[in-house]
């Protein structure tokens, strides 16, 4: 196991920024860093990381998925914790890496070791660090979409809601079918676009019926999909990642918004 030079005795966290956040919305990465630093962690961002390999895994290309998993295992060796702002990427690391190496004992041990110290951001703040007093404010009525992998593979349900309830000025309302898939599904959204859009439209109806003016979620893939359908339908509902709201970084354009609103 690689040892890391530490500048303090704070827990050393490697941020797994996810490929979507890296590409689309760095503000989620900075919000994550801010939340982790506020919670007393020292955060580093390994520059060997690209993607966790989930697209290859879910497309049945297990060999390339393993190659990418090895890259992540190496990039994040030596950190006390590996934390990322996505239930689906962190579930890939936590749940699916060990599955991928079921027949390779050496890598399996490393995958399991990594899985044990890897967490989705909000559940890490809530369940590991027991942070309940993030200082933030947001003026608006928010509804929260449960992304599937985070919900069903990592048990993320109450943590983001409890954190959001602490945000000053924010009122939280539940939409119908909050746990129903939005139709993103990785490559599903382009392989079966008509079905995917129907699912996204149903999500949009539920958001609108909830009376919320803001949609918040923990996975950028789902948020891109839902935002894309919201704007196409001309809806004024704003879309933010939960990390942005909890870190108070909502002065910037929301997902899918231009410079001029």
């Amino acid at each position: 196991m690689a040892t890391m030079t530490r500048s303090s005795d704070k827990p050393l966290v490697g941020l797994l920024h996810t490929c979507l956040v890296d590409f689309y919305r760095p503000s989620i990465g900075f919000a994550s860093v801010q939340l982790l630093e506020q919670a007393g962690c020292e955060v580093r961002v390994p520059d060997l990381q690209t993607c966790c390999g989930q697209p290859a895994f879910n497309s049945g290309n297990f060999d390339q998925a393993r190659a990418m998993a090895r890259q992540v295992i190496k990039a994040f060796a030596g950190f006390d914790y590996v934390v990322g702002p996505s239930g689906s990427c962190m579930s890939q690391v936590k749940v699916h890496y060990p599955q991928l190496f079921a027949d390779e004992p050496d890598w399996l041990a490393q995958a399991q070791e990594l899985a044990g110290r890897s967490f989705e951001l909000v559940s890490f703040l809530s369940d590991v660090l027991n942070k309940t007093d993030l200082q933030s404010s947001y003026q608006g009525t928010v509804t929260y979409h449960d992304s599937c992998s985070g919900l069903r593979e990592l048990g993320i349900k109450q943590q983001p809601r409890k954190q959001l309830e602490q945000v000053q000025g924010l009122s939280l309302v539940e939409m119908a079918e909050a746990e129903t898939c939005c139709g993103f599904g990785g490559t599903f959204c382009v392989k079966y676009p008509e079905i995917s859009v129907r699912m996204a439209s149903q999500k949009v109806s539920n958001i609108q019926a909830s009376g919320a003016d803001t949609l918040v979620g923990g996975d950028l893939g789902c948020l891109l999909n839902i935002s894309g359908r919201l704007t196409r339908e001309g809806s004024p509902v704003r879309v933010f990642h939960v990390a942005e709201v909890l870190a108070g970084m909502t002065q910037i354009p929301a997902i899918g918004e231009g410079e001029m609103r």
């Binding site: 920024h17 956040v21 890296d22 590409f23 689309y24 919305r25 760095p26 503000s27 990465g29 900075f30 961002v45 520059d47 959204c189 382009v190 392989k191 676009p193 008509e194 859009v197 996204a200 891109l224 999909n225 935002s227 894309g228 359908r229 704007t231 196409r232 910037i252 997902i255 899918g256």
Partner: peptide, 24 residues
Amino acid sequence: LARGWTEQRDMPAPQGATFQQLWQ
């Protein structure tokens, strides 16, 4: 190359620089 996405949905635009660029 992404008509499947954009036919009935918009594609939110990236913010500009990547997180890795900004972080470095």
